[in-house]
Simulated assay, not measured.
Amino acid sequence: MKINFIASDQRKETLTEEVFYIKNMVCSICIRVIQEKLIFLALPVQEVELGWVRFKKILEPEELNRVGQALGEEGFEIILSNKSKIVEQIKELIGQTLYPNESPKGLKYSEYLSKSIGRDYSFLSHTFSALENLTIEKYVICQKADRAKTTL
Rank of each mutant, 00 (worst) to 15 (best):
H126R: 10
G118H: 13
Y139K: 03
T135Y: 00
H126D: 07
S125N: 13
L131Q: 10
S122L: 03
G95L: 08
G95H: 03
T127N: 05
K105E: 15
E92S: 03
Y139F: 08
S125C: 08
F128K: 03
E111H: 07
S116V: 14
E92I: 05
F123M: 06
S129R: 15
Y121T: 00
S103M: 09
Y112C: 01
G95C: 11
T127Q: 02
P104E: 15
K138S: 12
S110K: 14
E132N: 01
H126I: 05
L113N: 09
G95W: 09
S129T: 14
K105A: 11
E92K: 00
Y112W: 03
G118A: 07
Y99S: 11
G118N: 06
P100R: 08
L113E: 00
S103G: 03
F123E: 05
Q96M: 06
G95V: 08
A130H: 10
P104A: 11
P104I: 02
G118Q: 03
K108S: 14
N133S: 11
P104G: 13
Y139M: 06
R119I: 08
E132D: 09
T135M: 08
S114P: 01
S114Y: 04
E137S: 11
K105H: 13
Q96D: 15
S116N: 11
Y139D: 06
S122N: 12
L134W: 03
H126N: 13
P100E: 06
L93W: 14
G118P: 02
L131G: 12
L107M: 13
E92L: 04
S116L: 08
I94H: 01
S129Y: 14
K105Y: 15
S110R: 06
N133K: 03
P100T: 12
T127K: 00
K115W: 07
Y121A: 00
S129P: 09
L124I: 08
L131K: 13
L113W: 09
R119H: 09
Y139S: 08
E137Q: 12
L107S: 11
L98R: 11
E132P: 00
F123C: 01
P104M: 14
E132F: 01
G106S: 06
I141R: 10
N101H: 15
E132Y: 00
E137F: 03
L93F: 15
S122Y: 02
